[in-house]
Amino acid sequence: VDYIVEYDYDAQHDDELTIRKGDIIKNVKKLEEEGWLEGELNGKRGMFPDNFVKEIK
């Protein structure tokens, strides 16, 4: 499942992704941690907030 970024987010920890509006995040999975998703961007896998992105259908 792929998501498109709607709002910029700067990573706060090493396991998070810095994302920018218009980025496409690939292979996204829901995490047990409420409010977070995990996906791949530019060869890096990491977490990001689910309210900054929208699923591409």
Rank of each mutant, 00 (worst) to 15 (best):
G43I: 02
Y9I: 01
D15H: 12
G39V: 00
R20V: 09
L17M: 08
A11M: 12
E40W: 13
G22A: 05
D8M: 05
G35R: 06
R20S: 05
E38W: 07
D14L: 14
Y9F: 10
F52E: 02
D50V: 13
R20M: 05
N27L: 14
K44R: 14
M47S: 08
A11H: 04
I19N: 00
Y7M: 13
P49S: 14
D23A: 11
V1F: 09
W36L: 04
D23Q: 15
I24N: 03
Y7N: 11
F52Y: 09
G39L: 00
Q12S: 10
L37T: 05
I4M: 09
K54H: 10
L31Y: 08
D8L: 02
I56D: 06
I56Q: 06
Y7V: 09
D50L: 15
D10N: 13
F48V: 15
A11N: 04
R45T: 08
Q12V: 12
P49M: 14
V28T: 06
T18D: 06
T18N: 09
K57H: 15
P49N: 15
D50H: 14
K57P: 15
V53E: 02
D50E: 14
P49D: 03
N42I: 04
P49Q: 13
V5L: 01
T18Y: 03
I25N: 00
E40S: 10
K30W: 06
V53M: 03
E33S: 12
K30L: 12
G22L: 05
E40Q: 09
I25T: 01
N51I: 08
I24V: 07
I19E: 00
V53A: 15
V53P: 02
K30T: 06
K57I: 15
Y3V: 08
H13T: 09
G35M: 04
D2E: 14
A11G: 10
Y9N: 04
V5S: 04
K26D: 02
V5G: 12
G22Q: 04
L37V: 07
D8H: 08
E32F: 13
D14A: 11
K30H: 07
G43H: 13
N42G: 08
L37M: 11
P49I: 07
W36F: 09
R45D: 01
N27M: 06
I19Y: 02
E34H: 11
V5H: 01
L37Q: 04
K21H: 07
Y7D: 14
K29Y: 15
E6M: 14
Q12D: 08
I56F: 03
E38D: 12
L41D: 01
G35Y: 04
